[in-house]
Design a protein around this nucleic acid. Structure first.
Length: 642
RNA sequence: GCCGAUGUAGCUCAGGGGUAGAGCACUUCCUUGGUAAGGAAGAGGUCAGGGGUUCAAUUCCCCUCAUCGGCUCCA
């Protein structure tokens, strides 16, 4: 007999060899139908695998992330079966489940594959799914496994087998397809009811550029057609929010082939938005004791040799610029920190001066390969809301607390409600990989963990994810449609102070090395604004919107009055424009609505006579008549809601 | 950089071996209006660039460039 503890902590007894499926059918028929897999003591299992020990059992359905992952993994196998049927001789790499669906890396040999082939494969997959074939697990010896794939001529699977231990190798089969696979899988292909292949891409075997490039086919499946339709609608929604589309529509930024790819040109409205964001942070930083500095866009190559960036990231920087006469080499700056280190060194520092918090909206240039550029998210020139805090080791925690506060403040102001903090520590097994002495690392890591705890952050700790120069804390935000983005970052650095020989005089009258903390709440202005655009779908918070109001005179006769109103509102820092076109009011309203302008102010004879304005709110409609003062009050109320 | 797709008017897109089309935007004129498109006329293109096949290429082929989706990388 085995004792099985269910998720509600009830314990049920079964014969040895019972399966999760049987347990489910004893609970309810409906549950039994929906079980895709099970978790046995935290490990995902096939629902039809025999249980021979006391354990905790969790039944997984489509409502569980692990249930979805299991189905998608099984879907990858189903796709492989379809591919093998349609393109005999296809060789298979790996085919895992991913966050939204699955992919399979395959080698079609000479066949060149494109998305035109999707339909055929989807249909084949549906046919195969309707066969209701079971996924069957089979233990196999390493030798037999090797023989199988030798016979099949699949060198990728053979390579994977090399790393596996005899005795722990399993095959999974469904229909006519057998694959090397750890599992688990859903019980039968019948659960897969809706199938969509999404994209095709090249992917290097084992992610290594030196290896052969395989064809990666992405897809997603659902137990109901309706869910697929909803998913596709969600993708459309995301497309509507694409910052490149909205950036064009709202005239925020543009790119020009002539200027160069990946080099954004900020249009007046985008510049307004960006300046508002920068000024918002400037103000918060001033209050937080930061001092702003400005450094040049190029720096001597030796600066980056000293910092180590040249050696480590030289390939990812633009080539040095030579001066014609002196033959000096300058680099477009890929980082602000070396410049800031030199500012630190510009005068002797005492322990009483620390921390020194040096901020700069510093534009940097990095050589990103052409294929990686993406709107404002991946560019070759971008501005970091950079700051470097030079402090004593005993101040690290305090500074972390302050930076966490600053970042939380920024996120709140921009309506990013959900975020988590990832703490990246070093791998204590491989200490030689890291710069800085043991004691300081321990202190810094403890300081970060404690700071995050004290601030009640929702944290994940990642061992071995620290940079070689220090531990870090990264903030991941969730946007309005559930996508996750890495934004702010705080990083401790023991490397640069050493390389630049930064010092301060301690209370003991001896020289000491400061600790450096890099931090950027936004990361880069470009990337952040892109994410912000997608987060709010172009409907920015009122305080950020380039045009907060559009003044719409009923006819040309009232343009003057409209302009007077604009001037009055400008006095209250309310910005916008007068739509002086000879268009009807309906038209002007429509255009202003489409530009997502928060408030429309309609002025005509009635308003001019009574010295009032008519206000219409974006997305809501007519708010009625206001005096300038009462409208300013309304705006202020809106602003304070944040 | 690599794999795949795409490139036609300022924008969104249709078309197709016989030198190009729509809607919106733009210009001019008419209209002077009250809460999501007033009307008319006009102007706009070396069909991304270069080469090839052809009597003829924007259309077919090759190369280059850019864009999009991925891979890889991310101080």
């Amino acid at each position: 007999m085995v004792k099985i503890t269910l998720t509600d902590n009830s314990v049920v007894e079964y014969e040895n060899g019972v399966t999760a499926a049987q347990v489910a059918s004893d609970i309810s028929e409906g549950l039994a139908r929906n079980v895709l897999a099970a978790k046995v003591d935290g490990e995902t299992w096939d629902s039809n695998r025999s249980i021979n020990r006391d354990c905790k059992l969790q039944l997984l359905t489509w409502n569980d992330d692990d249930g979805k992952a299991t189905m998608w993994h099984s879907s990858a196998h189903l796709m492989a079966e379809a591919l093998e049927a349609l393109y005999p001789g296809t060789k298979f790499g790996i085919g895992p489940a991913i966050e939204n669906g699955f992919y399979y890396d395959v080698d079609f040999g000479d066949h060149s594959f494109s998305s035109d082939d999707f339909k055929k494969i989807e249909e084949k997959m549906l046919d195969l799914a309707r066969e209701k074939n079971d996924y069957q697990r089979q233990d196999i010896s390493k030798k037999d496994a090797i023989d199988y794939f030798k016979k099949k001529g699949d060198e990728y699977k053979l390579e994977l087998l090399e790393d596996l231990e005899d005795g722990s190798i399993t095959f999974y089969s469904q229909g006519n397809f057998t694959d090397l696979c750890r599992g688990p899988h859903i019980p039968t292909t019948a659960a897969i009811k809706a199938i969509k292949l999404l994209k095709v891409a090249g992917a290097y075997w084992r992610g290594d550029e030196k290896n052969k490039q395989l064809t990666r086919i992405y897809g997603i499946t659902f137990p109901k057609q309706k869910e697929l339709t909803e998913y596709l609608e969600m993708l459309e929604l995301a497309k509507e929010r694409d910052h490149r589309k909205i950036g064009k529509e709202l005239e925020l930024f543009t790119f020009s082939e002539k200027v160069g790819m990946g080099l954004p040109l900020w249009l007046p409205r985008g510049t307004l938005l960006r300046n508002r964001l920068e000024n918002f942070l400037r103000k918060a930083q001033r209050e937080g004791g930061y001092e702003e500095v400005i450094t040049p866009h190029i720096g001597h190559k030796d600066l980056y040799v000293t910092s180590g960036h040249y050696e480590k990231y030289g390939e990812d920087s633009f080539r040095p610029i030579l001066t014609p006469n002196e033959g000096e080499e300058f680099m477009l700056k890929p980082m602000n920190c070396p410049h800031h280190c030199e500012i630190y060194k510009s005068k002797p520092r005492s322990y009483k001066d620390l921390p020194v918090r040096m901020a700069e909206f510093g534009t940097v240039y990095r050589y990103e390969q052409s294929g990686e550029l993406h709107g404002l998210i991946r560019v070759r020139s971008f501005t970091v809301d950079d700051a470097h805090i030079f402090c004593r080791q005993d101040q690290v925690k305090e500074e972390f607390l302050k930076v966490i506060d600053l970042i939380a403040y920024v996120f709140k102001a921009l309506d990013f409600k959900e975020y988590t903090a990832q703490i990246s520590l070093r791998d204590s097994e491989n200490k030689e990989k890291y710069m800085g002495d043991d004691e300081n690392w321990d202190k810094a890591e403890r300081a970060i963990i404690e700071a995050a705890e004290e601030k009640g952050l929702n944290t994940v700790v990642e061992i071995g994810e620290a940079a070689f120069y220090g531990p870090k804390l990264d903030f991941m935000v969730k946007d309005a449609i559930g996508r996750k983005w890495q934004l702010g970052t705080i990083q401790v650095d023991y490397n640069l102070p050493e390389r630049f020989e930064l010092e301060y005089k301690g209370s003991d009258n001896k020289m000491h090395r400061p600790v450096m903390i890099h931090r950027a709440p936004f990361g880069s202005m470009e990337r952040f604004i892109a994410i912000l655009i997608e987060h709010c779908g172009g409907r920015f918070p009122l305080w950020l919107t380039p045009d907060q109001i559009a003044i719409l005179p009923i006819s040309d006769k009232y343009n003057d009055y409209g302009n007077n109103v604009l001037k009055l509102l400008n006095n209250y820092d309310i910005c916008g424009f007068v739509d002086e076109r000879s268009e009807k009011t309906g038209r002007k309203i429509r255009d202003a609505e489409q530009k997502k302008i928060p408030f429309m102010i309609i002025v005509g004879g009635k308003e001019e006579d009574k010295n009032t304005i008519s206000v219409r709110k974006h997305g809501e409609g007519d708010l009625g008549s206001f005096t300038i003062d009462s409208f300013v009050e309304l705006i202020n109320k809106e602003l304070n809601n944040n």
